[in-house]
Simulated assay, not measured.
Amino acid sequence: MNTLHTLFAISMAAWFISEFFYKNKLKSSKDDKKDKDKSTLNILWLAIPFSIGTAVVCSYETHFPIVEENWIMYLGELFIILGIVVRYIIIRSLGKFFTVDVTIKEDHTIKREGFYKYMRHPSYAFSLLTSLGLGLYLNNWWSLILAFLPPFLAFAYRIKVEEKAFVEQFGDEYLEYRKNTKKLIPFIY
């Protein structure tokens, strides 16, 4: 179990460092249409640290286990690692079109391959998988709710803002793409 706790600490540090890197290095440039964000980046940077902090504190202060066995911690850690790694791969696949703020680049196009063939917001989906993993790792129903719900609501707001910007930019092309894909979970939602 001690190895799992060490892995958890390392993955949480990697999560924070990667998100901090994205926030500081992958911003829109002065030539981009960046008036669309509506504070979604700030909301995410409030919601996610809040959810992590309250979920961890709640796991120490309350006893409301999801299951009595330790396997759930391993599943949670797997989700954390998958979320971090796959989100990184998705961000890399978008290249210059990925920004942390809602932005339309001058030569922006709609990506339809890879994960984007099945869902419109895979980067957010895998960020939420990391949050879900945290809640499962903590093995506490309250922690699970606190780890997942605030980021989910923040991403839901961001998706609404982002999709409005895409419809304004791409019109029927984006509406057609939206009709043929799901937001966050392939074939479901």
Rank of each mutant, 00 (worst) to 15 (best):
L4G: 03
L4Y: 02
L4C: 05
H5S: 11
T6Q: 14
L7S: 02
F8T: 06
A9Y: 03
A9D: 10
I10T: 13
I10D: 14
S11W: 10
S11Q: 10
S11L: 11
M12G: 10
M12H: 09
A13H: 01
A13T: 06
A14F: 05
A14H: 05
A14Y: 01
W15Q: 15
W15L: 13
F16E: 05
F16D: 03
F16H: 07
I17H: 05
I17M: 12
I17N: 05
I17K: 02
I17G: 04
S18N: 15
S18P: 03
S18L: 12
S18G: 14
S18T: 15
S18I: 10
F20A: 14
F21I: 14
Y22L: 12
Y22K: 06
Y22V: 02
Y22H: 12
Y22P: 01
K23P: 02
K23F: 12
N24I: 01
N24R: 15
N24D: 08
N24E: 14
N24M: 14
K25N: 09
L26W: 09
L26V: 00
L26S: 13
K27S: 14
S28T: 09
S29P: 00
S29K: 15
S29M: 12
K30C: 00
K30T: 09
K30F: 02
K30I: 14
K30L: 07
D31T: 09
D31L: 14
D32Y: 02
D32G: 09
D32E: 00
D32C: 05
K33P: 00
K34V: 01
K34L: 01
K34C: 01
K34W: 12
D35T: 04
D35H: 08
D35F: 06
K36L: 12
K36I: 05
K36E: 04
K36D: 00
K36P: 01
K38P: 04
K38E: 15
K38W: 10
K38R: 03
S39Q: 06
S39K: 11
S39E: 10
S39R: 13
T40R: 01
T40A: 13
T40E: 03
T40D: 00
T40Q: 01
L41G: 02
L41D: 08
L41Q: 02
L41R: 07
N42D: 10
N42K: 13
I43D: 12
L44Y: 07
L44V: 07
L44W: 10
W45Y: 11
W45L: 09
W45D: 09
W45R: 15
L46W: 14
L46V: 04
L46T: 04
L46S: 06
A47F: 10
A47V: 08
A47R: 03
A47I: 10
I48V: 04
I48K: 00
P49N: 04
P49L: 08
F50W: 08
F50G: 04
F50V: 04
F50H: 04
F50Q: 03
S51A: 12
S51P: 04
S51T: 15
I52R: 08
I52D: 10
I52T: 10
I52W: 07
G53I: 15
G53P: 14
G53N: 09
T54I: 15
T54F: 09
A55F: 05
A55T: 13
A55V: 08
V56A: 04
V57T: 08
C58M: 14
C58N: 11
C58S: 05
S59L: 06
S59E: 01
S59W: 05
Y60M: 13
Y60C: 07
Y60L: 13
Y60Q: 09
